[in-house]
Protein backbone atom coordinates (compact mmCIF):
# COMPACT_ATOMS: atom_id res chain seq x y z
CA UNK A 1 0.00 0.00 0.00
CA UNK A 2 2.78 2.33 0.91
CA UNK A 3 4.47 1.71 -2.39
CA UNK A 4 1.26 2.32 -4.25
CA UNK A 5 0.79 5.64 -2.50
CA UNK A 6 4.33 6.51 -3.31
CA UNK A 7 3.82 5.68 -6.95
CA UNK A 8 0.69 7.77 -7.21
CA UNK A 9 2.39 10.59 -5.38
CA UNK A 10 5.35 10.47 -7.70
CA UNK A 11 3.09 10.44 -10.73
CA UNK A 12 1.19 13.44 -9.51
CA UNK A 13 4.38 15.24 -8.67
CA UNK A 14 5.61 14.59 -12.16
CA UNK A 15 2.33 15.91 -13.53
CA UNK A 16 2.60 18.97 -11.34
CA UNK A 17 6.18 19.64 -12.35
CA UNK A 18 5.10 19.20 -15.92
CA UNK A 19 2.35 21.76 -15.73
CA UNK A 20 4.38 24.89 -16.33
CA UNK A 21 5.50 23.63 -19.69
CA UNK A 22 2.09 22.22 -20.49
CA UNK A 23 0.25 25.35 -19.56
CA UNK A 24 -0.82 27.87 -22.10
CA UNK A 25 1.15 31.00 -22.53
CA UNK A 26 -1.43 33.35 -21.22
CA UNK A 27 0.88 35.31 -18.96
CA UNK A 28 1.54 38.91 -19.86
CA UNK A 29 4.97 39.79 -21.20
CA UNK A 30 6.48 39.43 -24.62
CA UNK A 31 4.16 38.39 -27.42
CA UNK A 32 4.48 34.88 -28.79
CA UNK A 33 5.14 34.15 -32.42
CA UNK A 34 4.43 30.58 -33.47
CA UNK A 35 6.41 29.00 -36.27
CA UNK A 36 5.32 25.68 -37.68
CA UNK A 37 8.06 23.56 -39.20
CA UNK A 38 8.91 20.04 -40.30
CA UNK A 39 10.91 17.96 -37.86
CA UNK A 40 14.32 18.67 -39.45
CA UNK A 41 14.16 22.33 -38.48
CA UNK A 42 16.98 23.46 -36.24
CA UNK A 43 18.72 26.75 -35.41
CA UNK A 44 21.40 28.05 -33.10
CA UNK A 45 20.31 29.17 -29.70
CA UNK A 46 22.00 32.58 -29.91
CA UNK A 47 20.52 33.36 -33.32
CA UNK A 48 17.00 32.74 -32.07
CA UNK A 49 17.73 34.64 -28.84
CA UNK A 50 18.93 37.61 -30.87
CA UNK A 51 15.64 37.82 -32.70
CA UNK A 52 13.66 37.39 -29.50
CA UNK A 53 15.39 40.21 -27.61
CA UNK A 54 15.44 42.54 -30.59
CA UNK A 55 11.69 42.27 -31.08
CA UNK A 56 10.59 41.54 -27.53
CA UNK A 57 8.93 38.34 -28.64
CA UNK A 58 8.97 34.69 -27.64
CA UNK A 59 9.33 32.25 -30.50
CA UNK A 60 7.53 28.96 -30.26
CA UNK A 61 8.41 26.27 -32.78
CA UNK A 62 5.98 23.50 -33.61
CA UNK A 63 7.60 20.52 -35.27
CA UNK A 64 4.84 18.72 -37.07
CA UNK A 65 6.28 15.52 -38.50
CA UNK A 66 7.96 15.11 -41.88
CA UNK A 67 7.57 17.77 -44.56
CA UNK A 68 4.41 16.20 -46.00
CA UNK A 69 2.70 15.69 -42.64
CA UNK A 70 3.56 19.21 -41.47
CA UNK A 71 2.05 20.69 -44.62
CA UNK A 72 -1.09 18.58 -44.21
CA UNK A 73 -1.47 19.89 -40.69
CA UNK A 74 -1.14 23.46 -41.92
CA UNK A 75 -3.78 22.85 -44.58
CA UNK A 76 -6.24 21.23 -42.18
CA UNK A 77 -5.92 24.13 -39.73
CA UNK A 78 -6.43 26.70 -42.49
CA UNK A 79 -9.47 28.43 -41.00
CA UNK A 80 -7.87 28.81 -37.59
CA UNK A 81 -4.12 28.61 -38.13
CA UNK A 82 -2.00 26.72 -35.66
CA UNK A 83 0.87 29.15 -36.11
CA UNK A 84 1.76 32.47 -37.66
CA UNK A 85 4.47 31.31 -40.02
CA UNK A 86 5.03 28.03 -41.79
CA UNK A 87 8.53 27.00 -42.77
CA UNK A 88 9.56 23.96 -44.74
CA UNK A 89 7.43 23.43 -47.80
CA UNK A 90 9.70 22.49 -50.72
CA UNK A 91 9.24 22.84 -54.45
CA UNK A 92 7.83 19.32 -54.80
CA UNK A 93 5.03 20.16 -52.35
CA UNK A 94 4.69 23.86 -53.20
CA UNK A 95 1.65 23.51 -55.47
CA UNK A 96 -0.28 21.70 -52.77
CA UNK A 97 0.31 24.63 -50.42
CA UNK A 98 -0.56 27.27 -53.02
CA UNK A 99 -3.62 25.42 -54.29
CA UNK A 100 -4.96 25.08 -50.77
CA UNK A 101 -4.28 28.79 -50.34
CA UNK A 102 -2.72 28.71 -46.89
CA UNK A 103 -0.33 31.69 -47.27
CA UNK A 104 -0.73 35.47 -47.28
CA UNK A 105 1.52 37.22 -49.81
CA UNK A 106 4.39 39.22 -48.37
CA UNK A 107 6.85 41.25 -50.42
CA UNK A 108 9.83 41.19 -48.11
CA UNK A 109 12.36 43.98 -48.77
CA UNK A 110 15.07 41.33 -48.57
CA UNK A 111 13.73 39.53 -51.60
CA UNK A 112 15.72 41.84 -53.84
CA UNK A 113 18.93 40.32 -52.50
CA UNK A 114 17.86 36.84 -53.52
CA UNK A 115 18.57 35.49 -56.99
CA UNK A 116 15.54 35.06 -59.24
CA UNK A 117 16.19 31.38 -59.81
CA UNK A 118 14.91 30.69 -56.28
CA UNK A 119 11.75 32.78 -56.51
CA UNK A 120 9.25 30.32 -57.87
CA UNK A 121 6.03 31.84 -56.56
CA UNK A 122 5.56 35.09 -58.46
CA UNK A 123 2.95 36.32 -55.95
CA UNK A 124 5.40 35.99 -53.05
CA UNK A 125 3.14 33.84 -50.93
CA UNK A 126 5.97 31.36 -50.43
CA UNK A 127 9.41 32.92 -49.99
CA UNK A 128 12.57 30.90 -50.62
CA UNK A 129 14.77 30.34 -47.55
CA UNK A 130 17.26 27.63 -48.39
CA UNK A 131 18.11 25.08 -51.02
CA UNK A 132 19.86 21.76 -51.30
CA UNK A 133 20.82 19.55 -54.19
CA UNK A 134 19.91 15.89 -54.23
CA UNK A 135 22.83 14.16 -55.92
CA UNK A 136 24.44 10.78 -56.33
CA UNK A 137 27.17 10.28 -53.73
CA UNK A 138 29.89 7.70 -54.09
CA UNK A 139 32.38 6.02 -51.80
CA UNK A 140 35.79 7.26 -52.99
CA UNK A 141 37.82 4.45 -51.42
CA UNK A 142 35.69 1.78 -53.04
CA UNK A 143 36.46 3.07 -56.51
CA UNK A 144 40.10 3.79 -55.73
CA UNK A 145 40.70 0.26 -54.46
CA UNK A 146 39.35 -1.18 -57.66
CA UNK A 147 40.93 1.54 -59.84
CA UNK A 148 37.52 2.10 -61.29
CA UNK A 149 36.40 5.47 -62.64
CA UNK A 150 33.37 6.72 -60.69
CA UNK A 151 30.28 7.46 -62.82
CA UNK A 152 29.97 10.95 -64.29
CA UNK A 153 26.43 11.06 -65.62
CA UNK A 154 23.09 9.37 -65.25
CA UNK A 155 23.82 7.36 -68.40
CA UNK A 156 26.96 5.92 -66.85
CA UNK A 157 24.88 4.13 -64.24
CA UNK A 158 23.60 1.80 -66.92
CA UNK A 159 27.09 0.53 -67.79
CA UNK A 160 27.94 -3.04 -66.82
CA UNK A 161 30.91 -1.94 -64.69
CA UNK A 162 28.49 -0.21 -62.32
CA UNK A 163 26.21 -3.18 -61.99
CA UNK A 164 24.73 -3.72 -58.49
CA UNK A 165 26.35 -0.55 -57.21
CA UNK A 166 23.46 1.90 -56.88
CA UNK A 167 20.99 2.24 -54.01
CA UNK A 168 18.07 4.69 -54.29
CA UNK A 169 15.03 5.57 -52.18
CA UNK A 170 11.39 4.92 -52.91
CA UNK A 171 9.86 8.15 -54.33
CA UNK A 172 6.58 7.30 -52.63
CA UNK A 173 8.04 7.49 -49.14
CA UNK A 174 11.23 9.52 -49.35
CA UNK A 175 11.92 13.10 -50.34
CA UNK A 176 15.38 12.48 -51.89
CA UNK A 177 13.85 9.44 -53.59
CA UNK A 178 11.23 11.62 -55.21
CA UNK A 179 13.87 14.19 -56.15
CA UNK A 180 15.93 11.55 -57.92
CA UNK A 181 12.89 10.30 -59.84
CA UNK A 182 12.25 13.92 -60.89
CA UNK A 183 15.89 14.22 -61.95
CA UNK A 184 15.44 11.36 -64.35
CA UNK A 185 12.13 12.74 -65.62
CA UNK A 186 13.72 16.11 -66.25
CA UNK A 187 16.72 14.51 -67.96
CA UNK A 188 15.04 11.86 -70.10
CA UNK A 189 11.63 13.45 -70.46
CA UNK A 190 8.26 11.96 -69.61
CA UNK A 191 8.56 9.60 -72.53
CA UNK A 192 12.03 8.34 -71.71
CA UNK A 193 12.36 8.02 -67.95
CA UNK A 194 10.61 4.68 -67.63
CA UNK A 195 12.95 3.08 -70.16
CA UNK A 196 15.87 4.46 -68.16
CA UNK A 197 14.51 2.96 -64.94
CA UNK A 198 13.92 -0.36 -66.69
CA UNK A 199 17.59 -0.31 -67.69
CA UNK A 200 18.61 0.66 -64.14
CA UNK A 201 16.57 -2.23 -62.85
CA UNK A 202 18.27 -4.57 -65.32
CA UNK A 203 21.55 -3.25 -63.93
CA UNK A 204 20.37 -4.31 -60.46
CA UNK A 205 19.47 -1.05 -58.75
CA UNK A 206 18.40 -1.47 -55.11
CA UNK A 207 15.39 0.45 -53.77
CA UNK A 208 14.80 1.06 -50.06
CA UNK A 209 12.13 3.14 -48.36
CA UNK A 210 14.10 5.85 -46.63
CA UNK A 211 17.32 7.80 -46.67
CA UNK A 212 18.50 6.43 -43.31
CA UNK A 213 18.45 2.89 -44.64
CA UNK A 214 20.04 3.73 -47.95
CA UNK A 215 22.86 5.70 -46.36
CA UNK A 216 23.58 3.87 -43.13
CA UNK A 217 22.71 0.30 -44.10
CA UNK A 218 23.27 -0.17 -47.82
CA UNK A 219 25.90 2.46 -48.72
CA UNK A 220 29.39 0.95 -48.63
CA UNK A 221 30.77 3.91 -46.69
CA UNK A 222 28.62 2.91 -43.70
CA UNK A 223 27.22 -0.55 -43.51
CA UNK A 224 26.56 -1.84 -46.94
CA UNK A 225 27.82 -3.24 -50.16
CA UNK A 226 26.74 -0.48 -52.57
CA UNK A 227 29.17 2.34 -53.32
CA UNK A 228 26.71 4.75 -54.98
CA UNK A 229 23.78 6.28 -53.11
CA UNK A 230 21.22 9.02 -53.66
CA UNK A 231 21.92 11.68 -51.02
CA UNK A 232 22.72 15.40 -50.92
CA UNK A 233 25.55 17.48 -52.33
CA UNK A 234 26.16 18.53 -48.73
CA UNK A 235 26.76 15.01 -47.42
CA UNK A 236 30.55 14.95 -48.07
CA UNK A 237 31.33 18.08 -46.00
CA UNK A 238 29.19 16.69 -43.20
CA UNK A 239 31.18 13.48 -43.31
CA UNK A 240 34.15 15.69 -42.43
CA UNK A 241 32.40 17.74 -39.76
CA UNK A 242 30.79 14.81 -37.99
CA UNK A 243 33.61 12.39 -38.47
CA UNK A 244 34.36 10.01 -35.64
CA UNK A 245 38.05 10.81 -35.80
CA UNK A 246 39.22 14.09 -37.34
CA UNK A 247 39.79 13.78 -41.09
CA UNK A 248 40.85 16.33 -43.66
CA UNK A 249 39.36 14.83 -46.78
CA UNK A 250 35.74 13.74 -47.20
CA UNK A 251 35.53 9.99 -47.84
CA UNK A 252 32.69 10.48 -50.27
CA UNK A 253 32.17 12.60 -53.37
CA UNK A 254 29.32 13.75 -55.57
CA UNK A 255 28.45 13.13 -59.22
CA UNK A 256 28.08 16.67 -60.48
CA UNK A 257 27.51 16.13 -64.21
CA UNK A 258 24.95 18.30 -66.00
CA UNK A 259 21.40 17.42 -64.98
CA UNK A 260 22.50 14.72 -62.53
CA UNK A 261 21.28 16.59 -59.46
CA UNK A 262 17.88 17.89 -58.45
CA UNK A 263 17.47 21.21 -56.72
CA UNK A 264 15.16 21.34 -53.71
CA UNK A 265 14.19 24.79 -52.49
CA UNK A 266 12.46 25.24 -49.15
CA UNK A 267 10.01 28.07 -48.61
CA UNK A 268 8.46 29.93 -45.71
CA UNK A 269 5.20 31.82 -45.73
CA UNK A 270 2.89 33.78 -43.47
CA UNK A 271 -0.13 31.66 -42.65
CA UNK A 272 -3.48 33.12 -43.64
CA UNK A 273 -5.45 34.45 -40.70
CA UNK A 274 -2.48 35.22 -38.45
CA UNK A 275 -3.08 37.80 -35.75
CA UNK A 276 0.60 38.70 -35.65
CA UNK A 277 1.13 39.86 -39.19
CA UNK A 278 3.71 42.50 -38.26
CA UNK A 279 5.84 40.14 -36.20
CA UNK A 280 5.48 37.41 -38.78
CA UNK A 281 6.87 39.78 -41.41
CA UNK A 282 9.80 40.54 -39.12
CA UNK A 283 10.52 36.86 -38.66
CA UNK A 284 10.42 36.23 -42.42
CA UNK A 285 12.82 39.14 -42.93
CA UNK A 286 15.04 37.68 -40.25
CA UNK A 287 15.05 34.28 -41.91
CA UNK A 288 16.24 35.91 -45.13
CA UNK A 289 18.87 38.04 -43.41
CA UNK A 290 22.51 36.98 -43.27
CA UNK A 291 22.36 36.35 -39.52
CA UNK A 292 19.92 33.48 -39.92
CA UNK A 293 21.06 32.44 -43.37
CA UNK A 294 24.63 31.87 -42.21
CA UNK A 295 23.33 29.63 -39.45
CA UNK A 296 21.40 27.37 -41.83
CA UNK A 297 24.06 24.98 -43.20
CA UNK A 298 25.38 23.59 -39.94
CA UNK A 299 21.93 23.26 -38.44
CA UNK A 300 19.88 21.91 -41.30
CA UNK A 301 22.37 20.60 -43.86
CA UNK A 302 21.00 22.88 -46.59
CA UNK A 303 22.27 26.18 -47.97
CA UNK A 304 21.26 29.83 -47.82
CA UNK A 305 19.50 31.41 -50.78
CA UNK A 306 20.92 34.78 -49.84
CA UNK A 307 24.27 35.05 -51.63
CA UNK A 308 25.50 37.59 -49.08
CA UNK A 309 25.61 34.88 -46.41
CA UNK A 310 29.14 33.63 -45.85
CA UNK A 311 29.69 29.91 -45.69
CA UNK A 312 31.80 28.05 -43.18
CA UNK A 313 35.21 27.20 -44.58
CA UNK A 314 34.51 23.44 -44.62
CA UNK A 315 31.74 24.07 -47.07
CA UNK A 316 33.78 26.41 -49.22
CA UNK A 317 36.37 23.68 -49.41
CA UNK A 318 34.34 20.53 -49.80
CA UNK A 319 30.94 21.50 -51.12
CA UNK A 320 30.30 20.11 -54.58
CA UNK A 321 28.64 22.50 -56.98
CA UNK A 322 26.47 20.59 -59.43
CA UNK A 323 26.30 21.87 -63.00
CA UNK A 324 22.80 22.92 -63.99
CA UNK A 325 20.78 21.08 -61.37
CA UNK A 326 17.43 19.93 -62.65
CA UNK A 327 14.15 21.43 -61.49
CA UNK A 328 10.58 20.85 -62.63
CA UNK A 329 7.63 23.22 -62.52
CA UNK A 330 5.75 22.66 -59.23
CA UNK A 331 2.42 22.62 -61.03
CA UNK A 332 3.64 19.93 -63.37
CA UNK A 333 4.76 17.91 -60.35
CA UNK A 334 1.45 18.38 -58.58
CA UNK A 335 -0.49 17.26 -61.62
CA UNK A 336 1.62 14.18 -62.30
CA UNK A 337 3.16 13.09 -59.03
CA UNK A 338 0.77 10.21 -58.45
CA UNK A 339 0.87 8.97 -62.05
CA UNK A 340 4.67 9.17 -62.22
CA UNK A 341 5.16 7.30 -58.98
CA UNK A 342 2.56 4.74 -59.99
CA UNK A 343 4.25 4.15 -63.35
CA UNK A 344 7.65 4.00 -61.65
CA UNK A 345 6.38 1.39 -59.18
CA UNK A 346 5.00 -0.73 -62.02
CA UNK A 347 8.40 -0.77 -63.69
CA UNK A 348 10.80 -0.94 -60.77
CA UNK A 349 9.03 -2.75 -57.96
CA UNK A 350 7.29 -5.45 -59.96
Amino acid sequence: MKRLCLLILVSFLATACGTPFFGKDTTAGPATLKVMTHDSFAASEDVIKAFETENNVTLQFLASGDAGTALNKAILSKGNPLADVFYGVDNTFLSRALEEDIFEPYRSPLLKEIPDEFKIDSKNRALPVDYGDVCLNYDKAYFAERSLQPPQTLDDLLKPEYRSMLVVQNPATSSPGLAFLLTTISYYGEEGYLAYWQALKDNDVLVVNDWERAYYTEFSRWGGARPIVVSYSSSPPFEVIFSETPISEPPTAVVTGAGACYRQIEFAGILKGTKNRRLAEKWIDFMLSTRFQEDIPLQMYVFPVNPAARLDEVFVKYLFKPEQPAMLDPELIAANREAWIQAWSEVVLR
Binding site: F61, A63, W211, Y216, S235, F242
Partner: peptide
Protein backbone atom coordinates in the same frame (compact mmCIF):
# COMPACT_ATOMS: atom_id res chain seq x y z
CA UNK B 1 4.86 11.22 -30.87
CA UNK B 2 6.65 12.19 -34.08
CA UNK B 3 3.54 13.90 -35.40
CA UNK B 4 2.61 15.87 -32.31
CA UNK B 5 5.91 16.48 -30.54
CA UNK B 6 7.35 19.87 -29.76
CA UNK B 7 10.99 20.15 -30.82
CA UNK B 8 12.07 21.53 -27.45
CA UNK B 9 10.82 18.42 -25.69
CA UNK B 10 12.00 15.41 -27.67
CA UNK B 11 11.48 11.92 -26.29
CA UNK B 12 14.22 9.29 -26.61
CA UNK B 13 12.78 7.71 -29.80
CA UNK B 14 12.34 11.16 -31.35
CA UNK B 15 15.94 12.05 -30.47
CA UNK B 16 17.15 8.76 -31.98
CA UNK B 17 15.30 9.48 -35.18
CA UNK B 18 16.75 12.98 -35.34
CA UNK B 19 20.29 11.63 -35.08
CA UNK B 20 19.64 8.88 -37.59
CA UNK B 21 18.53 11.30 -40.26
CA UNK B 22 21.86 13.13 -40.37
CA UNK B 23 25.01 12.09 -42.20
CA UNK B 24 28.30 11.47 -40.42
CA UNK B 25 29.79 8.79 -38.18
CA UNK B 26 29.25 10.64 -34.94
CA UNK B 27 25.57 11.07 -35.59
CA UNK B 28 25.05 7.42 -36.43
CA UNK B 29 27.10 6.30 -33.45
Amino acid sequence: TAIISRPEYPTIPVAIFRLLSQPGGLNYG
